[in-house]
């Protein structure tokens, strides 16, 4: 118990520090310099209505590339760790209720459409590649729940993921030659503000990010699902 009381003391010390920080904090009353630059110049330079999108895709595009790489590594490590159990056959099928199958047949195209809408309109409305990808992956969960018997091909997901990753990097490199730098979005014309095909390459890049994130997340779920089906 002496160990626990020492730990409690440490936590209490941290709580005191946090209380100190909280009482010293007095709220923001204006943007700092970087944010001010993004808010004023972001429109004329990038042309996206959603400032978060312009920060994620264009100004901090390299971070987004690294982040997508981390997700890819996670999916790859998971597939590597559970590789050995793939060769066995699935012995018995789980019985799914009629209600779930019918409902998922109605809902699946709608969910896919919503996901695609979210990541294509990422530069105009709240949303974007990550959110759309997550919606696509949740559609994948519904598909796995309803049709337990059918095999979903790993190869299709891998193909989508590889193609969109390569296209993302290629668009970035194209930005070096045609515009200001890596992942610069003005390789296409900026277009009129507020339309679907505006803001240069942002809709294209964000769609590829959405496809890639959706494929990776559903790959993770698929690997976990298949290993649990095999171990009967």
């Amino acid at each position: 118990m002496i160990r626990n009381s020492i730990l409690l003391l440490i936590i209490a010390g941290l709580a005191f520090i946090f209380y100190h920080e909280l009482s010293a904090y007095h709220g923001n009353d204006g943007l700092n310099e970087t944010a001010n630059y993004y808010a004023t110049k972001g429109l004329s330079e990038v042309g996206a209505a959603n400032l978060v999108t312009s920060v994620v895709v264009t100004y901090r595009g390299l971070d987004t590339l690294g982040e997508v790489t981390i997700l890819f590594l996670t999916a790859a490590i998971l597939a590597l760790m559970f590789k050995t159990s793939h060769s066995q056959k699935e012995t018995q099928k789980r019985i799914t209720s009629e209600l779930l199958i019918t409902a998922s047949n109605v809902l699946l195209p709608v969910i896919f459409l919503v996901g695609i809408y979210i990541f294509i309109n990422g530069h105009l409305t709240p949303g974007g590649g990550f959110q759309g990808g997550a919606v696509l992956a949740s559609a994948m969960v519904l598909m796995l729940l309803s049709i337990s018997g059918r095999k979903i091909k790993h190869a299709v997901l891998d193909f989508i993921e590889a193609i969109s990753g390569i296209a993302f990097v290629l668009l970035g490199i194209l930005g070096i030659f045609l515009a200001g730098g890596f992942l610069d979005n003005s390789i296409f014309s900026l277009g009129t503000f507020g339309e679907l095909f505006s803001a240069g390459a942002i809709p294209v890049i964000y769609s590829f990010i959405g496809l890639k994130v959706g494929a990776e997340l559903s790959n993770i779920i698929l690997v976990l699902n298949q290993t649990q089906n095999v171990e009967k």
Binding site: G128, S138, I221
Partner: peptide, 20 residues
């Protein structure tokens, strides 16, 4: 933006992975 992400990823996908 963050709200959509948190609702779809944090409270749906994470719980699904935990349950698997």
């Amino acid at each position: 933006d963050v709200a959509i992400t948190e609702a779809s990823i944090g409270s749906a996908l994470t719980v699904v992975i935990f349950f698997y």
